[in-house]
C-alpha cells in the first residue's frame, strides 16, 4: 500500500530533479580562486586539506565530535559490562596469523606516511587513522587481538585525547588570537601537524572501537 504512494512519488521527484539540474546556470560565486589565493597562509599545500583543517576547520572539529559521539553511543547502547569477561582468542589459521604479523608494521609505516603526505597530497589524519583502524580489525580477524570490552582509563584517554587536543588548540587560539581556530600563518603548519598527529591516533582508536566494541558483545571474537 505504502509502495503505491512512495514509488511513483520517488520517480516523479527524480525526474523533476534531473531536469532541473540539467537546466542549471553556472553559480554566481566561485570559491576555487579564493581557496587558491589563501593557500600560502593556510599552512598546508593541498587545497582539500586547507579547506578541512583551516578554512572550514570548525566543521572538522564538530565532525570528529560526531565520530566520538557515535563511539560513546555504542558503549552506552551495548549494555552493562558482561560478567563473563574472559575473552579467549580463537585459535586461528597459522598462515593468517603470520600474514597479519607481517602486515602490521607495514601498515603502521603507511599510516605515518599518509599523515605526513596530507600537507601536500591527498592524505591526512583521517586516512592515516583509517589505516590504523584497519590494522586493528585485521589483527582481530586473524585472532591476534581480542574484541574490546568497556574501555579502561588509558583507552578512554586515547579515544578522546585527539579531540580534546584539537579543542584545546582551538580554545587557546581563541584566548591568544581572539578567534576560534585562527592559526597564525607562521605557526599554522606546525599546529596543524600537531593536531593531525593527535587525531590520527584517536581516530584510529575510535574507528577500530566502532568495530571491536561491537565485536565483543557476544562474548569473544568471531
Amino acid at each position: 500500500m505504502k509502495r503505491l504512494v512512495v514509488i511513483p512519488a520517488a520517480l516523479f521527484f527524480v525526474l523533476v530533479l534531473i531536469l532541473a539540474l540539467v537546466d542549471l546556470a553556472p553559480p554566481a560565486f566561485d570559491l576555487r580562486p579564493l581557496v587558491a589565493e589563501n593557500l600560502a597562509s593556510s599552512g598546508v599545500a593541498h587545497p582539500v586539506t586547507a579547506v578541512l583543517l583551516n578554512y572550514r576547520a570548525y566543521d572538522t572539529l564538530l565532525e570528529i565530535g560526531v565520530l566520538l559521539l557515535a563511539l560513546m553511543a555504542i558503549l552506552a547502547v551495548s549494555g552493562s559490562p558482561r560478567t563473563t569477561s574472559n575473552t579467549s582468542l580463537s585459535a586461528s589459521d597459522p598462515l593468517l596469523a603470520m600474514l597479519g604479523r607481517i602486515a602490521a608494521p607495514v601498515m603502521v609505516v603507511v599510516a605515518v606516511y599518509l599523515l605526513w603526505a596530507g600537507t601536500s597530497r591527498p592524505g591526512g589524519a583521517f586516512q592515516a587513522g583509517a589505516v590504523l583502524a584497519a590494522l586493528a580489525v585485521l589483527l582481530h580477524l586473524t585472532g591476534l587481538l581480542a574484541g574490546w570490552q568497556q574501555p579502561g582509563v588509558r583507552l578512554r584517554w586515547g579515544l578522546a585525547g585527539g579531540f580534546l587536543l584539537f579543542l584545546s588548540v582551538g580554545a587557546l587560539l581563541l584566548l591568544v588570537e581572539g578567534e576560534l581556530l585562527r592559526y597564525p600563518p607562521a605557526h599554522a603548519g606546525v599546529l596543524i601537524l600537531l593536531i593531525e598527529s593527535g587525531l590520527t591516533l584517536s581516530l584510529g582508536l575510535i574507528l577500530a572501537g566502532l568495530f571491536l566494541f561491537l565485536s565483543h558483545d557476544q562474548g569473544g571474537p568471531r
Binding site: L31, R32, V35, P47, V48, A50, V51, L52, Y55, R56, D59, T60, E63, F126
Partner: peptide
C-alpha cells in the same frame, strides 16, 4: 576542493 572537503566531512 570545498565540496570535496564537505563530502569528506
Amino acid at each position: 576542493p570545498v565540496t570535496q572537503a564537505m563530502v569528506l566531512t
